[in-house]
C-alpha cells in the first residue's frame, strides 16, 4: 500500500473522472433541472463564467447527482461493504425523487462508484476512507475554487460531448 496522502490524491482523480463522466453522459450541463439551477447558471454567467458549466453547477447544488452518489457509495462501502453501497444507491434515488429530479444520473453514478470503490478496496491498494476524502477534494475543484474557471472547463468538456449528440449518438 502507498502512503495515505498519495492514495487520497489518486482516489480524488478517480472520483473526479467518475462523476464528471456520468454527469456528462446524462446531459447535466444542457439545461437547469429546476428554476433555482437556472438562476445559479445566470449568476455564474454574469460574472464571467460559461452558461453550460453554470447549469451543471446549479444542478449539482439543487439535487443529489453523480457526485453525491460517489460520496455516499464510498461512505456505504466504508461502513458495511458492498451491501452498504447498494443501500446508498437506494437512498440517492429516494433523495432525487424528493428534489424533483428523475434520478438516473445519481443512481447510475452511485452504482458505478460502488463497483469502483469495492474493487479498489478488494485489490488491497486503497482503503474506503481514501475515497471519501478524495470525493471531497474532487467536488472542491468544481464548486469551491473559482466558479469562473470551473464553469469554463465544464463548458469545454460539454462542447466535446455535444459533438456526439449531433452525430446521432444518444
Amino acid at each position: 500500500m502507498l502512503e495515505e496522502p498519495v492514495r487520497i490524491l489518486i482516489a480524488a482523480a478517480i472520483c473526479w473522472l467518475n462523476f464528471v463522466t456520468v454527469d456528462l453522459i446524462f446531459k447535466l450541463p444542457e439545461k437547469g433541472g429546476v428554476i433555482g439551477a437556472t438562476a445559479i447558471a445566470e449568476q455564474v454567467e454574469a460574472t464571467g463564467g460559461n452558461k453550460n458549466g453554470g447549469f451543471m453547477m446549479g444542478n449539482i447544488v439543487s439535487s443529489p447527482d453523480a457526485s453525491a452518489g460517489t460520496l455516499l457509495a464510498a461512505c456505504g462501502v466504508y461502513c458495511s461493504g458492498l451491501f452498504g453501497g447498494l443501500f446508498a444507491a437506494v437512498l440517492v434515488y429516494i433523495g432525487n425523487r424528493i428534489c424533483y429530479d428523475p434520478g438516473y444520473a445519481g443512481t447510475t453514478g452511485c452504482l458505478t462508484a460502488t463497483l469502483i470503490v469495492y474493487g479498489a478496496v478488494q485489490s488491497g491498494w486503497f482503503a474506503a476512507s481514501d475515497f471519501i476524502a478524495g470525493m471531497v477534494i474532487a467536488i472542491l475543484t468544481i464548486q469551491g475554487i473559482s466558479s469562473m474557471y470551473a464553469s469554463r472547463l465544464i463548458g469545454r468538456l460539454w462542447r466535446i460531448r455535444s459533438r456526439f449528440i449531433r452525430a446521432g449518438r444518444p
Partner: peptide, 25 residues
C-alpha cells in the same frame, strides 16, 4: 451511519434547492 449521512446530505440539498428557487421567484 449511511442513513444519517444520506439524510443530512439530502436535507441540505433540499434546503439549497428551496432557497435558490424562492430567490429566483
Amino acid at each position: 451511519t449511511i442513513l444519517a449521512a444520506a439524510a443530512y446530505f439530502v436535507g441540505s440539498t433540499l434546503e439549497s434547492n428551496a432557497i435558490a428557487s424562492t430567490w429566483a421567484g
